[in-house]
Design a protein around this nucleic acid. Structure first.
Lengths: 138, 138
DNA sequence: TTCCTTGCAAATCGTTTGCAAGCGC
DNA sequence: GCGCTTGCAAACGATTTGCAAGGAA
């Protein structure tokens, strides 16, 4: 047999585009969209294409180096924080705040047993108005 | 002053299209997409348009008669169950199961105070393989 | 040299909108 | 009759894909 296995027949090469995309997501806490990542990466690599940004975002998410998140009515956004956590999403300006994970691990196992399902992950998202938007509207 | 107020200047008329859309969402527990609602409504009203289905889905959601839900990577889907509850989403076939609400109300108020935000709602979504997909893949 | 990656442009998907005709109140 | 609603088709925004050239290993 070779050095590669069935689930890893294709090797990922290291390219400056890939590195720049990863750096762009890791460098902020704003949970940027693909478009926003694209704008940041373009500052380093002027002729990078949006398609390349999309491809690398997916690839990095598959590798587990970043995470994809999505809130109702918004586009997919990217998160460089890998530890389990929850989100607050502002329905007015789209700002996202990370929150420490609060869901007890027992909640997952009890569901696994009750429903006969396999749970890979969960998302606990709070929707509302952030501090700024709250005062702006009062 | 008149019988209408500032937030209710436009009246909603009752149309057979609107009624059929509502019935389609309320009639199933599958959390149908707009396209699926369209297919059901078409059986009653052959020449209904997809745009009308979309418009009525939004309108009914605004009125609070149905709810919109969205899971990562999937299109918006509709839920006729109005009581607070949580969801299990199968990442393989897209099936959704309703789960009783487990999140303690105290979680919301503590966040409200800590972050200085206003929380309107939350979504607690579990992702994984449903019973069928689980056995199908083993 | 191999074949993964890229940039570009076109395609796709879900959803929204403009418009003139239709219909509830 | 007024004006909300509809059906149709075109427009839209986000994301994906085909393809030939480019660049890691």
């Amino acid at each position: 047999m070779t050095t590669s296995n069935e689930t890893d027949t294709q090797r990922h090469r290291s390219t400056k585009q890939r590195a720049a995309v990863l750096a762009a997501v890791e460098g902020v806490h704003t949970h940027p969209s693909a478009e926003e990542v694209y704008r940041v990466v373009r500052k380093k690599i002027r002729n990078v294409s949006l398609a390349t940004v999309y491809r690398n975002l997916h690839l990095l998410a598959e590798e587990g180096k970043i995470r994809e998140v999505q809130f109702k009515g918004d586009s997919i956004r990217y998160d460089g924080m890998l530890e389990a956590h929850e989100h607050f999403y502002c329905t007015s300006c789209g700002a996202i705040e990370d929150l420490p994970s609060k869901l007890p691990a027992t909640a997952l196992s009890s569901l696994t047993n009750k429903l006969g399902v396999t749970i890979e992950r969960y998302a606990l998202d709070y929707y509302g108005l952030c501090k700024k938007c709250k005062s702006r509207k009062s």
